[in-house]
Design a protein around this nucleic acid. Structure first.
Length: 788
DNA sequence: CTAGGGTTAG
């Protein structure tokens, strides 16, 4: 038997018609052109070459698609990337692993995790380590950290062995307070497998883990110092994280060190150091660096532009968005991030919520797809709008884009409901939340605190404490809740928990503590002093005060009449800490002077300021005039308010009060007789008036600004909306529960006084939220200690 | 094709 050693049959198969075509010189030439164009970033031309190939009757091969997709990812040209995807779907070509991986990466960078996931799931056998890594990274970047971690574990279980890219992606997903420990465990795993922190990629992830997950800049710096290879990216990462965690000066120091070592800052480095310059006191350097950006020909860059937009939004002295907007308008190109940066700027500045919504409309008109960050900011803006339909509409957009389940979007929705007083809806959204993180809990605790449901807030607190652990935000919310209802005892309890938890060095907790003692100082004299002591302690401990700190400490000074201290702190605020006073600080000073009776000095102070004060400051003066019965100055203050806000109800006295009862809101205007129970309400009001006069109430007719007889003035006083609302509350609610009234203006002085008497005469607890603050009235005393 | 830097709710 002779065995013929023949080549395997496959080799005898004549070249197929397909491969014959590939050798076609026209096709080869076009393919070369296409690759050249794609690699050079001329994607539009490359696409038309691709079309030309098809028109000639050839099928473009996989290589063409691969090269084109790579280029789309590199240049972030998502539109063409999507176009390629649909062309590929229409063609008979079966995409291979590399092309599918590229598509996952493309959709990941676009923020379209749903499409990326679909491709990943359809891959089956074709999945490789890169596909897994791309998917893990996709979830991490789209705000779905848990999904990212689960996918990592799935992969390990599947038998795939992670490499440095994979470790880096999953550790990135763990860079939060909630998942930090998971990150550490995975890092331990990485060490075991031999991927030490010495790998630049894993090293960067580790820096992030310490910085973002544990807010531990010292450890982050240690990793950085130990890295055998430091490049521009690692320097930039350090600068950016230091800046993000508020260590702005260190960020600037690192930047200078980097430059002195010979590294040339690129767009990302500028971006990081510019963000640090948003801090008060560094704005001059910020402007200088803006010059550096222009010199480096980076001013047209979107990335640098984003940081400039952000920097000017946060640091411009007069609180306007003009400089920020100028940078935005001058940018050559806009992407999601630049749109999000300007929208966020407007939202954070406050009072610009409609402008933020308008910008969003322009953004989607321009076919830029919003991401989870965009919706996060937008929903925050919607919480301040009076029209709830806008918020619902925006949320529906998020649902359509598959972003509603992303944690920060869902949390913002809860926050939107809570802020607009819709606590029932907030709770519902919270219950529906699949993945509750610490922020979700904190938002709901804050909402409960602000809606004066401190009992529920505390209940939640103990629940969170045992479930996920509490943080500075939780404490800050509870402290402000305690302060709102004047629950001094609770406030002190939380203070001791703060000390136990060892987070007394957190700026937001310090602010909340000072503010709590300051606000409770009304009820107990010593507390305002404690607020001032805490503030001094804070400075001694080297904790940076911010604008909020000064509002709290200045009002504490005001409450106890520490005029000299008040001046001292007011001056050192800008001199020592570079904080430009805002209207709120001016209002505190006017309050301080007005409260101590120096009304004329308060007016002098206002006139000495380098700018025109707004209605808030004049309203404060008006309040002081009412307390001290200075009619003339009061009228002047009213005129000034009207000049700034012609429709301001305070100056027109178009007061309106409302309260919730029997599941609906009852609204009352001055002298209102429209309510179905009006007759009973006025009967009750008359009875109560007699009752409280017996125990010492004297109507304060000085507060009536109309020129009429005294008896008529008294009648006017008893037509005030808050008194009508209260009478309604007395006849329609259970005696065990406090009566909760809301008023669009400040509560009138006489009504405030009458309510204290009524709380005794009727044995009721009354909580009134006016335009300025909460008044918690019980047993003849108010948490505001008679100053409103 | 997968990593590292800009936008982030409280």
């Amino acid at each position: 038997m002779i065995t013929l050693s023949l080549p395997s049959p496959a080799k005898f198969i004549p070249p197929s018609s397909k491969s014959r075509r590939i050798r076609n010189p026209d096709f080869e030439a076009l393919k070369d052109t296409l690759i050249r164009q794609a690699n050079g970033g001329n994607l539009k031309q490359a696409i038309s070459t691709l079309d030309q190939i098809s028109q000639m009757g050839f099928n473009p091969d996989l290589t063409s698609y691969t090269v084109l997709l790579k280029s789309c990812i590199r240049t972030r040209n998502f539109q063409i990337g999507q176009l390629l995807h649909s062309k590929l779907n229409d063609s008979p070509i079966q995409p291979d692993t590399i092309v599918l991986n590229s598509l996952i990466s493309l959709y990941s960078k676009m923020g379209s995790w749903e499409t990326a996931e679909k491709i990943f799931e359809s891959m089956g056998e074709k999945r490789d380590l890169v596909s897994w890594s791309a998917m893990i990274s996709c979830y991490a970047h789209c705000g779905m950290e848990l999904e990212s971690v689960f996918t990592f574990y799935d992969m390990v279980e599947f038998g795939e062995y992670p490499n440095q890219f994979c470790f880096s992606a999953v550790i990135q997903a763990c860079c939060s307070a909630e998942l930090g420990w998971v990150g550490l465990a995975i890092f331990g795993f990485a060490i075991k497998t031999g991927y030490f922190e010495s790998d630049v990629c894993v090293g960067c992830a580790l820096i992030d883990l310490f910085a973002k997950g544990f807010s531990d800049l010292r450890s982050a710096k240690k990793v950085f110092d130990r890295m055998p290879e430091r490049n521009l990216v690692t320097w930039t990462l350090m600068i950016t994280r230091f800046s993000q965690l508020g260590a702005s000066k260190d960020a600037v120091r690192l930047f200078l060190e980097m430059v002195s070592e010979g590294f040339v800052p690129d767009r990302f480095t500028f971006s990081g150091v510019l963000s640090a310059c948003a801090e008060p006191g560094l704005s001059a350097l910020g402007r200088q660096l803006h010059g550096g950006v222009i010199k480096s020909r980076l001013s047209a860059d979107v990335c640098v532009g984003c940081s400039l937009v952000d920097m000017y939004a946060k640091s411009t002295m007069d609180g306007s968005m003009d400089d920020s907007r100028k940078v935005f308008d001058r940018m050559a190109d806009h992407n999601v991030m630049s749109w999000t940066a300007i929208i966020t700027g407007y939202v954070q500045r406050g009072h610009y919520d409609m402008e933020a919504i308008k910008l969003y409309c322009r953004m989607i008109d321009g076919l830029v797809k919003p991401n989870h960050f965009t919706f996060s900011s937008l929903l925050k803006a919607c919480g301040n709008l009076s029209n709830p339909a806008i918020g619902e509409q925006i949320y529906n957009h998020a649902v359509k884009l598959g972003l509603a389940s992303v944690n920060c979007v869902a949390n913002s929705l809860i926050s939107m409901y809570a802020k607009s007083g819709r606590m029932e809806e907030a709770r519902k959204a919270f219950e529906l939340l699949f993945e509750k993180n610490l922020a979700s809990y904190n938002i709901i605790v804050d909402g409960c605190s602000k809606s004066l449901d401190s009992a529920e807030a505390f209940e939640l607190f103990s629940h969170i404490d045992s479930e996920v652990g509490v943080d500075a935000f939780t404490f800050a919310s509870l402290l402000s809740g305690a302060a709102s209802v004047g629950a001094v005892g609770k406030g002190e309890q939380i203070h001791s928990r703060v000390l136990k938890a060892g987070i007394q060095s957190s700026q937001s907790v310090c602010n909340a503590l000072i503010s709590m003692y300051s606000r409770c100082g009304f009820a107990k004299h010593g507390f305002a002093h404690r607020a001032v002591e805490l503030f001094n302690q804070m400075l001694e401990d080297g904790i940076k005060p911010n604008e909020v700190t000064y509002i709290a400490v200045l009002s504490a000074c005001s409450h106890v009449g520490l005029v000299d201290e008040g001046w001292k702190y007011f001056d050192s605020m800008s001199i020592d800490h570079g904080i430009t006073p805002r209207m709120e600080h001016y209002a505190c000073m006017v309050d301080l002077l007005g409260r101590s009776g120096s009304l004329e000095k308060a007016v002098q102070f206002i006139k000495s300021l380098p700018l025109n004060v707004d209605a808030l400051v004049w309203r404060t003066l008006l309040g002081a005039c009412q307390v001290h019965g200075n009619l003339q100055l009061g009228k002047y203050a009213s005129e000034m308010i009207l000049e700034q806000e012609p429709n301001d109800p305070a100056a027109h006295e178009a007061g309106c009060s409302w309260m919730e009862a029997e599941n609906s809101v009852h609204k009352f205007y001055v002298g209102d007789t429209k309510h179905p129970k009006a007759k009973e309400i006025y009967e009750k009001l008359n009875k109560v008036a007699l009752k409280i006069k017996e125990i010492g109430y004297v109507p304060n007719t000085d507060l009536v600004l109309h020129e009429v007889e005294d008896e008529q003035k008294e009648q006017y006083l008893f037509q005030h909306s808050e008194k009508i609302a209260l009478a309604f509350g007395l006849i329609s609610t259970s005696k065990q529960k406090p009566i909760r009234i809301f008023k669009n203006l400040r509560v009138c002085g006489d009504c405030h006084n009458a309510m204290k008497f009524i709380s005794v005469a009727e044995g009721r607890e009354i909580i009134i939220r006016d335009s300025n603050r909460f008044h918690h009235i019980k047993d003849g005393l108010c948490s505001c200690n008679d100053y409103w």
